[in-house]
């Protein structure tokens, strides 16, 4: 009984390192194939549309309401020490530095990494990935590389849009409901915003985009065992992408943007 317990601990640890190793090799291969020809511009373009353009409604709505509720909360909280006037500056900092990239990343993770895992997972279980190989096409180049590039380039653009719409959401609540003067609200927003705030958010977004695509492709590629396997891959992709985004967010902030 005692030995069984120890064996259990051992096997869990071995499985963990096995998974880390597999993911590391997968990431390395994916990156390598991003920079070596042949390239597939048509596939890349399609993925960019899929990740970027089609995520706009989700990103826009989320950003608008996040900005709006942030303005409300800051107003209520700030009223306790007569700091209501900080609403505009806190909204713009909060959105550009944190909430834009993180909420945008999480929403795109739910939308995109699930779709990728399901698509690639189905291709795996119906032998379409084997078929690619027999047709002299490297699946890493054809499936993984375009998705990684599209994720890392499209998410910063989406987050830029989210930043603008989020700040606009705060502005609408601030001026319409909380009674701020339009001119003063805008002036405060612009005065408090530094280029660094936006850039740090976009750098984060690029890394989040890469992680989202990586998790979608990895879990799809590794899926086994029919419809159930694909379902599991989809769930794992979304959960792991979300956790990685939140973890990476802290690490990046701590290392580069906390001064």
């Amino acid at each position: 009984m005692r030995w069984n317990f120890l064996a259990l601990i051992g096997s869990v640890i071995l499985q963990f390192f096995g998974a880390v190793g597999r993911l590391a090799i997968f990431t390395g291969k994916g990156l390598l194939h991003c920079v070596t020809p042949p390239f597939y511009p048509r596939i890349l373009l399609r993925q960019m549309l899929q990740i970027g353009y089609y995520s706009l409604p989700v990103i826009g709505l989320t950003a608008f309401f996040t900005g709006a509720v942030l303005a409300l909360q800051i107003y209520i909280g700030g009223a306790r020490f007569n700091a209501e006037s900080l609403v505009s500056s806190i909204v713009v900092l909060g959105i550009t530095r944190e909430l834009g990239p993180v909420i945008g990343g999480l929403m795109v993770a739910g939308r995109v990494s699930a779709a990728m895992a399901a698509e690639i997972g189905t291709m795996r279980v119906t032998e379409q990935i084997d078929a690619l190989t027999t047709l002299s096409t490297n699946p890493f180049k054809y499936l993984v590389a375009p998705r990684l590039i599209a994720g890392a380039t499209m998410l910063p653009l989406l987050v830029l849009v989210a930043d603008v719409i989020g700040v606009f959401g705060g502005f609408v609540v601030g001026t319409e409901k909380l009674g701020f003067n339009v001119g003063i609200y805008l002036q405060n927003t612009i005065d408090f915003l530094h280029v660094d705030d936006v850039v740090s958010g976009l750098v984060k977004a690029s890394i989040f985009g890469f992680l989202i695509s990586l998790m979608g492709c990895y879990h799809g590629f590794m899926s086994r065992g029919g419809a159930q396997g694909v379902g599991r891959a989809t769930t794992n992709a979304v959960v792991s992408a979300s956790i990685m985004i939140l973890t990476a967010n802290y690490i990046i902030t701590e290392l580069f943007f906390a001064q």
């Binding site: 291709m123 119906t126 032998e127 379409q128 084997d130 078929a131 190989t133 027999t134 002299s136 490297n138």
Partner: peptide, 17 residues
């Protein structure tokens, strides 16, 4: 890939994209 280019394969389920 060069060896593969000389082969063709019909998959059981078709495996059409």
């Amino acid at each position: 890939e060069q060896v593969m280019a000389r082969m063709g394969m019909l998959f059981q389920g078709g495996a059409l994209f």
